[in-house]
Every structure is written in structure tokens, then in C-alpha cells.
Simulated scan of single mutants.
Amino acid sequence: MSHAAQAIEPRSSSQTAQEHWPFTVRQATPAIGAYVGDIDLREPLDEPTYLALRRALIRYKVLFFRDQDLTPAQHVALGKRFGKLEVHPVLPRHPDHPELVVFDKSDQKRGRENIFHSDVSWREVPSMGSILRCVECPPTGGDTIWVNMALAYEKLPGDIKARLEGLLAVHDLLPLFGAALSPEQRVSVRAQNPAVTHPVVRTHPESGEKLLFVNEAFTTHFANYAEIAGYRFGFDLKLAEMDLLQYLFRQAAAPEYQVRLKWEANTVAFWDNRSTHHYAVQDYYPAVRRMMRATIIGDRPV
């Protein structure tokens, strides 16, 4: 039996207390997110707490923890409890812990993460989850939004779901990250990170949920649209493909599928990249916003 299958599924704050969870859970919105309390992430997670957190993550899709003054080493150790960590090929990394991406924004460097995305969906084996800690927050602004992509798929009209059956999408890191690279760096990054193809609708390996798995940051086009949709005219085919892809992108913008977090220093967010998109709101310039992220390697989408 998998770790996820062994854990108990939380249902509400009152039931959580009755079931003797090793932490408290307060649901953030009806669609997604929960605040987790009475836990110290600096300490190694024992097996019952690890299993409970993993199951809570699957259910709520993003977990929020306040007042977690993690050192970089503790941050890495927490991430490794859930799986192997990746090293990002482009984003700045912590000098002593390359598994930690550092987002260091100020009046010298604007943020550019204001687009709905799933971290590293452009990998052949994308991320299982990400753990982000706020080191220094702006006095106001700089929130992050997460989206429940299982709900986004569930609420699609039936005829759209039918059109997505068997459809594959291409994910690529260069359209977003390439502008910050030199021509030589682009060649090197491309050689090590070719564009990949994933199902438009994937199945969550632990919950069994169907998930809409395209995002406007990294998904460039469908790989087999003509094969699935049938051919009429070249322009007609391409416009229909673009319309469908843009329609799918827009699902993430529905407030009914979202939760929004106001960061505080030492707040940690842990989210499931398989079942969510997120968007970092860039409304705080020129204030400082410094974050660190560990990203856990996942599984090949099916």
C-alpha cells in the first residue's frame, strides 16, 4: 500500500479534531486550500505526520503554514521527505543548496511570474509539488493565487471534454525563459531540455482525479490536433486549435476555482503541481519580495 493510501483524509476542521490528526486543518475556500497549524516544519516529520500531510495535500491541493522560520537546510530536508528534489536549469539558486530556487525581487529586478502555470511542466517527468517560503515580503501586495485544476476539468462542458479525449499538448521552457538567456545559453538549455508532450487531461496518480494539464506559461500547442479533430482548411484548423487552447487556458482565471494567499514572513506554501496552477501577483514593485522554493520531482503524466 502506498504512503498516500495509508493516510487519513481530512474533511473539516471539526472532524479533523475528532480524528486526532497530528495538526489542525482549516479549509481556506470551498474549492482549494487549507491552513495547517500546530506543526513545526523545522522538525523532521515522523511517519504519521508525513502520511497525514501528504493526504491533506492531495485533498486540499495547497497547504499554508504560518510562522515557519526554516533555515535553507531545513527547507531542503522538508522537501526531501516527500521525494527527490530537482535543480532548476535557469532560475537563480541558493549558493549552498542548489535545490532551492531563489526569487529575489526589488527595485532592481521586477517579478515575471504573473502568468498561470504549473512548475516545470516542460520536463518529461514534471513536478509532484513545490514548497515555497517567504523570506521577506512587501508591506502590501505580492499575493499568490492557486487554482484547482481538477475542478476546472470537472466543470468543463461535456462536448469540450469529448474534444479533449486523446489530445496531447507540447510543453516548452524556452518561450518563457529564453528571453533572459544569451544565444549560447539557449542552445545549451535546449540541448538538455527539449520540448515534451503530455496528455491535455492527466490522471492524478494518487487520487485518481482527472486534471486539466495545460498552462499558458509553458504549453505552446497541441501535438495531434489535426489527427483528433480532422482536417478542413489549414487556416481553419489552426484557428480552431488556438481557440480551444486559449479556452482551456482561461479556465484557470475563474475565481470559483481559486484561493489567494497574503504572504507574511516565514509563511510556507506547499502545493501539488499535478492538480494546481498558480500565479504570483506582480503589484508590489519597487518593494522587496524574497522567496525560496524547493521543487519535488513527480511522475510522468498519463
Score class of each variant (00 low, 15 high):
D107T: 12
V87E: 14
H88E: 09
P89W: 05
N114C: 08
L100K: 02
K84S: 11
D104S: 12
N114K: 02
L91R: 13
N114S: 14
E113T: 09
Q108W: 03
H94D: 14
L100Y: 03
P95E: 15
K84C: 04
V101Y: 04
N114L: 02
L85R: 01
E86L: 07
D107F: 07
L85E: 03
Q108M: 13
P98R: 11
D96P: 01
R110S: 12
D104E: 13
P92R: 09
G111Y: 03
S106K: 05
V90Y: 06
L85H: 01
F103E: 01
K105D: 13
L85P: 02
V90D: 06
V102D: 08
F103V: 15
R93L: 15
K105M: 12
F82C: 04
L85D: 03
K84A: 14
K84Q: 13
V102F: 08
V87F: 08
D104I: 01
P92F: 06
P89H: 07
F103M: 14
S106T: 09
V87L: 10
R110Y: 11
V101F: 00
L85I: 02
P98N: 13
R93I: 13
P89V: 08
D96E: 15
E99N: 01
G83T: 10
G83S: 05
P89I: 05
F103L: 15
D96T: 07
L85W: 00
F103R: 00
P98V: 07
P98G: 05
P92S: 06
H97Q: 09
R110H: 12
I115L: 14
G83H: 03
L100D: 12
V90G: 09
D107Y: 09
H88M: 09
K84W: 00
P89A: 05
H88V: 03
E113W: 05
E86M: 02
P89K: 03
P89Y: 04
H97V: 05
D104C: 08
V87P: 10
G111K: 00
V90C: 11
L100N: 10
G83E: 03
K84I: 13
H88T: 06
R93H: 14
E86A: 06
D96H: 12
E113I: 00
V90Q: 05
R93D: 03
L91Y: 13
P98H: 12
D107W: 11
I115Y: 07
F103Y: 08
R112H: 10
F82I: 09
H88C: 04
G111V: 03
E113G: 14
P92W: 10
S106D: 06
S106G: 04
D107E: 15
E86Q: 06
P98M: 06
R112M: 04
K84G: 06
Q108I: 01
V90E: 05
N114G: 08
L85C: 07
V102N: 09
V101S: 10
P92I: 06
V101L: 13
P95Y: 07
P89T: 11
E113R: 11
N114F: 02
E99S: 10
P95T: 09
F82H: 01
D104Y: 05
V87G: 00
Q108R: 14
P92L: 07
I115Q: 06
L85F: 04
N114V: 00
R110E: 12
R93T: 12
L91I: 03
K105T: 12
G83R: 01
D104Q: 06
P92G: 08
V101A: 11
P98A: 09
K109L: 14
